[in-house]
Amino acid sequence: MRRALYILLLTTCTVATATAQFHKTTDGRVNHFVTFSLAGGEANYFTSSRASDYAPSLKDKLGADGIFMLSYEMRKNWFIFGFGAQADYNYTRQQVGDFTEIFDRKDREDEEVHYAYRFSDYTDEQHVLHVSVPLYVGANIGYLLYVLAGAKVSIPLLSLHKTTTDLSTDGTYVRFIHTIEDAPSYGYYTVDEYSYSSSFDAPEIKISPFAEFGFRIPVRSRSGRVGMRLGLYAEYGLPLSINNKHLLVDYSFVDKNPFTQNKEQLRSSIVFNSPLNTDILSKKLSQLSVGLRWTVLINVTPPEHICMCDRDF
């Protein structure tokens, strides 16, 4: 969070300086634009932390963002001010390191056994759709370049996750030499793929400072009111809160006595939670997205002087 504030401050200063410099070069009238943009890029939580040495590791494998934004921009000379609304889709795939969970149970003969769930290739895919309200300022730099900086507040509309993992179970007896595997009547099952899909608790509010830098694309139009720009953006999402109280694997619905629950029943009873909602993370996740944004601007300023010479978008 603190880092996000520092970046926001830095972006704002940079934009302000750029805007101030741009203001020096142009005298201006206030133009009003409506913009819509499409952006897309890579998103990454940079999660490689773990709550403890015993906790399984959590690592991002893949992340992507897709943003559609509709905004109002006000521009005067070089200064840009805008705000709008975004629809932000984020896809993240995370992987949890192999782990085993062991429980002291009694088997079908009422013999004490160390019953183990062994997870491997544990993968979780998250799909999150945010609605965001960005607010930003920026500046046109020169004839072509621009820079924007701002922040947005995002609220998740939809968050789904799907966990797939390879799971095997076995039992270790005090009196036997090896751990008993593949004894279905005892609930010792061989490795098989298990999956679970459900919604998950994405962070309720996310503030994401962002910055964009690109170049304006001249567009020849009859009205002269359409402009485009293409820029590189970076967003750093900072969730204000996150629910990490869930267990990664929830056995609440799993019978302890395998005699009464077979494999299929296990498959249907075991619950895998999104790693983002579990305590395997040692800290809140923040996500950095970097991508390209193409923005179309439509000047909606009432004509006063239609100046054909202003080609600054």
Binding site: D107, R108, E109, E111, Y173, R175, F176, I177, H178, I180, A183, S185, Y186
Partner: peptide, 10 residues
């Protein structure tokens, strides 16, 4: 001998 399991004692 257990049901379905025949195992050596350690």
């Amino acid at each position: 001998q257990k049901n379905d399991i025949v195992a050596l004692l350690n």
